[in-house]
Design a protein around this nucleic acid. Structure first.
Lengths: 188, 188
DNA sequence: CGGTTTCTTGATTGGGATCAATAGGAGTGG
DNA sequence: CCACTCCTATTGATCCCAATCAAGAAACCG
């Protein structure tokens, strides 16, 4: 964070968390990234990065010097288009998080979080039904706008209800349809 | 929302709200836009718009056909750069809302909201210290992730504390430094 | 005007935060 | 291999902020 923006970073493998620090020292996890995600798009506007990103396991990234990308994109329209799509997708992704934080309760948030992780692991060729969480309960809570105790409690509740299996950081999705139901529960 | 993406829209004057509808009918205000803001960037990725935007007063927008913009930007590097900045700024803006929703209490949210509005009115050449809210309490609440009663209560509280003057939709900022203090209150 | 929407304010409730104590790993060094 | 420490997770008890329920009041509008 604060470093001059020069490159984008495409995740080739591994797992990352990004967090932003605010005025008075409060900071918040804004994203978990894995294979295929592009990091650093936020830096283009003010020429400086606005968040820190840390690898949570051994990882590989491909640094893409932005100036070079621009030149190349000027020659190759399909690359330009793909770059614009990536930015737009980032906007849409954050829109989803805004929705989560603005109008879902604790259970709904965690259900959405798990389903989202599951889907992304599947997209990267891993199992969608069991995986190892790379982040702590506190980091999950920070991302979801809740406290680590709440995260822990709801994991336990989901387990009691047979929706998931939890053993520390090892998670099994036992009833993804059930999680969908929790997430979409009509709370009006 | 759902319409095919063809154009961006630059706000020339007026005031807008954008809202997204979710699975089960819940919807949420995701943005208030005014002069200088660009609408529609979210549509690039999936070729369809993902939110509705409604004018809250007589307004003017300039529709910018995206295909044409791309051609022009290909010729004019500075335009291309400005376009990228606009997208990146949108990402950063949403990051700010995520932070607001994820780690601020009701008073802090409303203080931030008012200061943000004030700053943007000033940037558009209007008074930063008094303005007319175009949206209802319910819409403010939806944007800030709280209920309309809470918004109303906190307006009253701020007024009692001499931070602002409230008369329905007419707002006067009496002590912006005080609002800053409320917003940045060290709540750890 | 009467009807409707929006806003304010009070009383009560409830979900998640906070405080607190314990347990479980993981890593280190003996 | 065990003893020790540190970090992380779980679970219980209590508290508090904002949601909910409810009733008026104020503004807007045809």
């Amino acid at each position: 964070m604060g470093d001059r923006f020069t490159s984008l970073y495409a995740v080739r493998s591994g797992f990352f968390k990004s967090s932003g620090l605010r005025d008075n020292g409060r900071d918040q996890v804004t994203r978990f990234s894995m294979t295929g995600d592009v990091l650093g798009l936020d830096g283009i506007g003010q020429e400086h990065h606005i968040c820190n990103t840390v690898a949570l396991e051994d990882s590989d990234v491909c640094a893409i010097p932005f100036a070079g990308l621009q030149e190349l994109a000027h020659e190759i329209p399909s690359l330009q288009r793909e770059f614009h799509r990536a930015m737009s997708r980032e906007i849409v992704r954050e829109r989803g998080v805004m929705f989560l934080l603005g109008s879902m309760n604790a259970e709904e948030r965690l259900a959405m979080f798990l389903l989202n992780l599951s889907r992304r692991f599947a997209a990267s060729g891993y199992s969608s039904s069991e995986f190892h969480l790379r982040m702590t309960r506190e980091e999950i809570g920070s991302y979801l706008g809740q406290k680590l105790e709440t995260v822990s409690r709801i994991f336990s509740r989901f387990q009691q209800e047979g929706l998931i299996g939890v053993q520390q950081k090892y998670i099994r999705i036992l009833d993804s349809a059930g999680l969908e139901r929790v997430m979409a529960r009509d709370s009006d």
